[in-house]
């Protein structure tokens, strides 16, 4: 808990920076640092695989995508104006926040080893994966052995996204 809390504060601060800054290009760079802080938090709670993916794909690739889009735009388009707040957002979002925080008591405590998510199914994977798959890394065992078909279909999703990007960005497209 000692290292987590400052990192969580830093996470909210970098997100605030990405949202509040007036220029879109600087906002995108701060968003990259937000992704990196997120990867640090995940490495700290033991999710190293997720941290790797976030650092490479989130902080790296997403920032490159944003910058590629912004590199073709002119300066007048990337400056932001301060806008009036609509009444629906002013009333609805705090109400939604209160509703979500009201239900917080029913969620398991942070770092709780006996939370429902960690007691029913996941011990089975942890105890049996070395015997059944010969893979010490349990996340890899789940992704590539137990749920290999799901991972295959996921690559199909990424392939479709790649085709969509290529069709949208090809020369002479309307």
């Amino acid at each position: 808990m000692i290292l987590e809390l400052p990192l969580l504060v830093l996470l909210v601060m970098t997100a605030a920076g990405a949202i509040l800054v007036k220029d879109l290009v600087s906002g995108v760079f701060i968003l990259g640092s937000y992704s990196f802080v997120l990867a640090l938090v995940w490495a700290l709670v033991g999710a190293v695989d997720v941290a790797f993916v976030e650092a490479v794909v989130g902080a790296g690739l997403a920032t490159v995508f944003f910058l590629l889009t912004l590199s073709r735009t002119e300066e007048k388009d990337t400056e932001l104006r301060r806008l009036p707040v609509p009444k629906v957002a002013l009333i609805g979002l705090p109400l939604l926040a209160l509703l979500m925080l009201y239900g917080a008591g029913d969620l398991p405590v942070f770092n709780d080893p006996r939370s429902p998510a960690s007691t029913h199914l996941s011990p089975l994977y942890l105890e049996n994966s070395v015997e059944q798959t010969r893979t010490p890394n349990v996340v890899t065992a789940i992704l590539m052995d137990y749920r290999a078909l799901d991972t295959l279909v996921e690559t199909l999703v990424i392939f479709t996204a790649g085709i969509a990007c290529a069709l949208l960005l090809r020369n002479g497209a309307r």
Partner: peptide
């Protein structure tokens, strides 16, 4: 949700 007090990374 996946974090446990005193637990390490899920590599056996």
């Amino acid at each position: 949700f996946s974090s446990k007090e005193g637990a390490t990374v899920p590599v056996i």
